[in-house]
Design a protein around this nucleic acid. Structure first.
Lengths: 214, 214, 214, 214
DNA sequence: AATGAATGAGTTTTCATTCAT
DNA sequence: AATGAATGAAAACTCATTCAT
């Protein structure tokens, strides 16, 4: 019988042969995320990303077609993951209050685990313009809607008289507070996720009860 | 050593002579702000900025020394104005509550009047690593401190037992909520500044009273 | 952040593919030497050098990193060759007198074979302040030291009482005479290298014997 | 009677009014020489030269028409002075030997007194190309001819059988040795001009007597 | 006679992108 | 499927030179 393994068939110099494409793709995305996050989209160079990922530039182009494509793929991966994790966490709970807590906890987990991804998503959402603007805006909008739905449900327990816009505004305020708090938290490793969560939730609850009541 | 055939450079065609320097400076800054805001620091080109400002590149360099210098000057102008206006507005009032309201109102006014400036400041604060990162971080920190001080004063009226970090967190949350709300507001021309202000303040008040009490 | 409309850069037309890198490097250096020699460092343009070498600018940068790098590489190539050839020629002979003759002959050979290189080395040594000033000064100093050593040995055959500085001075005078003579010779193709050599050596010998004796 | 002085008549800011044109011209040339000598022709900027001379750029252009004109004027001034001084010194003496000594002494004096001028003349003579090439070549040629004539006269005292070319070569060698020695001397302030002169003359004499005799 | 303010024309350098192998 | 080597296009920045005052 002839040797059946696919690896190490000789001829080639060394390289990273035999690594399956999906794995390599992820590796490239990881490196790209780091580079984009550290130096910004423009300053990050394809050359460097390729080198750090242990491949050559044409490979990167073969996989992602262009720098913008690479960027989009990264944003997409991180964004989907954030949304998916939040949705999954939220869906587990029944009570609105619990759902909000679960989503918040998961959000902070993501922020801590994927600093690069989070910071890039955040920065990109802040910068208008650019072809990924829509995608990111939509992403954030989805989160805002999730929050808003929960807040509305929470409010129904009381007597909600607030109008549409008010809830929209409230959700935006809540999300903004969460983002800002998350970033602050990243600079304060001594503070627990628990504390951050509680503060944010308490603020949200208090606001719904009092601010919307007005 | 000496190159021959170097004659015939320079010259003049028509130009916008007679415009006093300070005026021109401001004009260039305005245009630069637009460009940076629309396309981001890297993508904005000096060539284009100069052309749109009705001058030539060397003029821009004569005034601002470098692209980064131009950017810095713009950030500086907008940032100082924002801070100054907020401080001035705040200083007029005596009561902490009134001070917070005044600052908030002035902030929203700035956001509305200087969209480009606001959006650039916001985006740049979100992106770490850009040029002037420090300057902007310091700017936002100053605003956070202003808020924090007011919140502390407000809280003293009650019985504040909250620790340091809590106030820090609260201020960051408040500022984040305000930023997010401001951006949302820019997309909703039908909503009055008044309403946005009230929502934000109510949220802040409720949070201080309830969230910190916990 | 992300600029749109950046597509469609790069490409290829025809080019001189297949030329091995070392060959191309030498070709570029040759052309660069010509350009630098003809127009001086500053006046020579990378654009022009690249075009004349049949490559594009980025190729030149890929090989030599910068204009100064290119210049340095050329100076280095020519300088090393000159020194190496002189050293090799010198080392063959045993007697001081023979060594001096061999070195001189080889020097003139280099001057004749590599006009561009020689003239650039000479000009650059004359101009203080250029890039690589140090490198060239060191080069010439090495030659001066070679000459000096030989002169000292020659002198030992007689009764040398001359002080240090005198030998230094003598070596500098000899080298200067050689350079000047070489340049003059380049304008007089009818004169033989032989004659130039003899004159220079005779002058050196006479000087050592008489001038130092004083 | 009304104040008659021409200076300080008011109206103007401050400036350097009242300085007669020739004085100003010389001042500009001085500064230009420094700049060219320090940084090379290309790297020296008109802006800087003007500023250091205490005038504005247009003034420089009014006086010298162009950068090249300024350079030419400086070279001209220094070159003429060198030649003139050497000729004057030489003309005083009668004997060939005395003439050579007088010229050499004066040359070294010039080198010491006018470092900038000397170094620029030397560097420019080394660099071919450039519009002043001819002028400088002619300058050096004149010095070489002076030397040659003296050497011929000196040689006549003996029995000269040397051919034309030999004297030419000899003169070039002598001048080259002188230049090189002069530059070396500039780096050795401890050595006296006297010593340098003697060495050079002795070398010249020895060479004429022995080398040409061959 | 002098100046402040501009300008046109380069220069070096960098990068995303793509063939030929 | 992968790479080494090139390329076209731009971008920041500089400077000699000149008008309008």
């Amino acid at each position: 019988m002839v040797a059946s393994g696919q690896v190490g068939r000789g001829g080639r110099r060394a390289g990273t042969r035999g690594v399956p494409r999906p794995v390599r793709e992820q590796r490239i995305l990881d490196v790209a995320g780091q580079a984009f996050s550290e130096r910004g989209y423009h300053a990050a160079s394809m050359e460097q990303i390729a080198r750090r990922a242990g491949v050559t530039k044409p490979v990167v182009y073969a996989y992602f077609a262009s720098k913008e494509g690479l960027y989009a793929a990264y944003i997409e991966r991180e964004g989907s993951e954030l949304i998916e994790r939040m949705r999954a966490a939220t869906d587990v709970a029944d009570e609105p209050a619990e759902r909000l807590r679960a989503g918040t906890v998961e959000f902070l987990r993501f922020v801590a685990e994927r600093r690069d991804g989070w910071q890039l998503l955040y920065a990109e959402a802040a910068a208008r313009g650019g072809p990924l603007a829509e995608r990111i805006v939509e992403l954030r909008a989805r989160i805002v809607r999730m929050v808003r739905r929960v807040l509305e449900q929470q409010s129904l327990d009381g007597r909600a008289t607030a109008n549409e816009a008010a809830f929209d505004a409230l959700a935006h305020a809540f999300v903004g507070a969460g983002e800002s708090l998350a970033n602050w938290w990243l600079t304060r490793p001594d503070v627990s996720a628990q504390d951050v969560t509680e503060l944010l939730l308490a603020s949200g609850r208090a606001t719904v009860e009092r601010a919307l009541a007005a």
